[in-house]
Design a protein around this nucleic acid. Structure first.
Lengths: 227, 227
DNA sequence: TTTTTTTGAGTCAATATGACTCAAAATTAA
DNA sequence: TTAATTTTGAGTCATATTGACTCAAAAAAA
């Protein structure tokens, strides 16, 4: 991973007001909350059937983009007025996260959002409302979830090498890992199985692995804490 | 803990239809989601300022108590008709859990709920809609959160003995723990500090401890997984 | 006074971890 | 063609942690 610390953002422009926000949208009356999330993600990224985690709900009474708006501005077009009304609502955000390979994604604007782009995670302070807090919360949750769930599997092909897996984990944990120790631990869990050899270019051929279907992917001995 | 595996439930009776449900209610337009939860909990239990965890959102498009209703029944009173309308809505539930000492709680009925009672966890199948799934989800989340967060602190007095803490953890994990090993691990984390001696009845006096304020209460070395 | 119960402290083998070295397989350079 | 370089797989070893114990101290009960 060259630079995995990047999030998808949308830009909304009204008059002189400019918002950079995380992708989001409404849940329809007769729609699963999860289906709504998948619809919105699909609209913006084309991604389907990837692994998400619902990590937080932001439900403060005063959560609105109205505070970011310049209220005395004149909003001319009907579209702008509708957008203004939308932005002034009180939002309850049910937040999901997913890890994806951004090199394989073609971002598109959506119904409510003008442009879509990748924002380096060290620039999240530019985000409107409390969206920087949401990113922070997502990252915390991701680290906490790491030892249990293979959310990272969105980032790996069906067959991958141990060095590939290690590079991924290193980028999530943001630290280097001793290669022999990583290999020892991962293999000892039995969560992956050798399925072939990487015959591609590079140097010495690496063994190819796959996650064992339906198998426990926990990195820590569940519910054991040293007692 | 004699029998900690118990949840609070409300019973709703309309005509011959009978629902046993988890406590719940609406979020008002200008109310924090969290404040609403606290209000509902307070109404039903009188509990204030306890530690909660928001663990899941249940948002299926067909989540309604309408499916549990006998539709051809005649609902006579205005109250019953209002209740019927309420029960037939599509619900999105933002779910919170807390661990409490049920021996100290006096349950009260609320605006929407007729009676309040404790239901042993092995009888959750009696719950209406998907509330049994919610309880299951809460338990899973609780176990996953165990090594990190002191949600259990609701169950302990400000000053407690190590055997008391151990009994609590044993009841949550539903297994016995070796006493010397538990003591060694807990003390090695430095999350609690000795604050006195238990001079009460019983046998040999036990040391009293308190959680160190603002201290990390993680039982596992964060973000270390054997590599 | 003796026994029983409960709590605090310690031992020790087995296991897991952290920090390494070394060799094999392929590419690249000489 | 050979040597150096890079990447991957395998192994070593001291240290730290864990799991299963024993033992003694303090208080109540016999």
């Amino acid at each position: 991973m060259k630079n995995p610390s990047t999030v998808i953002v949308n830009r909304i422009s009204i008059e002189k007001s400019d918002f950079v926000v995380l992708p989001g949208g409404y849940v329809n009356q007769n729609e699963d909350v999860e289906a709504a999330m998948e619809r919105i993600v699909s609209e913006s990224t084309g991604l389907e059937k990837i692994l998400f985690k619902q990590f937080a709900v932001f439900g403060g009474a005063n959560r609105s983009f109205g505070n970011n708006l310049v209220h005395h501005k004149v909003f001319k077009t009907a579209s702008e007025k509708a957008m203004l009304k939308w932005l002034s609502k009180r939002f309850v955000s049910i937040c999901y996260l997913a890890l994806v390979d951004y090199s394989k994604i073609k971002l598109k604007p959506t119904q409510f959002m003008d442009t879509a782009a990748w924002l380096p995670i060290n620039q999240v302070k530019k985000l409107a409302m409390d969206h920087a807090d949401i990113v922070k919360s997502a990252h915390d949750s991701l680290l906490k979830e790491m030892p249990y769930a293979p959310i990272a599997s969105n980032l790996l092909p069906a067959r991958f090498t141990l060095p590939e897996l290690q590079a991924l984990v290193e980028s999530i944990l943001n630290r280097t890992i001793d290669r022999p120790n990583f290999r020892r631990k991962i293999l000892s869990t039995g969560m992956i199985a050798k399925v072939g050899v990487d015959s591609s270019n590079k140097r010495r051929p690496a063994d190819l692995y796959s996650f064992k279907h339906g198998r426990n992917t926990s990195l820590i001995d569940e519910y054991k804490f040293g007692f």
